[in-house]
Amino acid sequence: MTPEQTMEPIAVETLLQRVQKMHEDGYRLVQIHATTLPDKLEITYSFDLDLRLASLRLHLPLEEPRLPSVSTIYGCAVLYENEMHDLFRVQVDGMTLDFKGNLYKTAVKFPFGSTKAPGVTCAAIAPAPTPKPAAGAAPVK
């Protein structure tokens, strides 16, 4: 189809550096989203430059996912990051505007965090029975 899309797996440690590079290259932040996979959390950052869509992807453990904030580089990222926090329980450190879980008013806390995955329930964070891969370790592909 039409859009030229690239998807590049990165590690959490290199996130800020890569996003900084994107910013310097003149990319516009299109969106950030998270997906709950059976065993991990997948975070995608999409950028656009002249209709080319470049995405960065990283993986986080389901248990206590933690991310550095890119809002110091892209100011508009705060909304996406707060959204990720409110819906997926991702702890984003250093947001320039932190709603502290009050961006969305949901009856259930963190509704999009997987209910199927062991050790993670909607309402509370229960300790997981099985150890999870470390943050950013070996993204798929």
Binding site: P3, Q5, V30, Q31, T44, S46, D48, L53, S55
Partner: peptide
């Protein structure tokens, strides 16, 4: 896929 189209209000991205 990530699909982007132009809505009256601007670009929408469907992932």
């Amino acid at each position: 896929t990530i699909m982007r189209t132009e809505q009256p209000r601007g670009e929408v991205a469907y992932c």
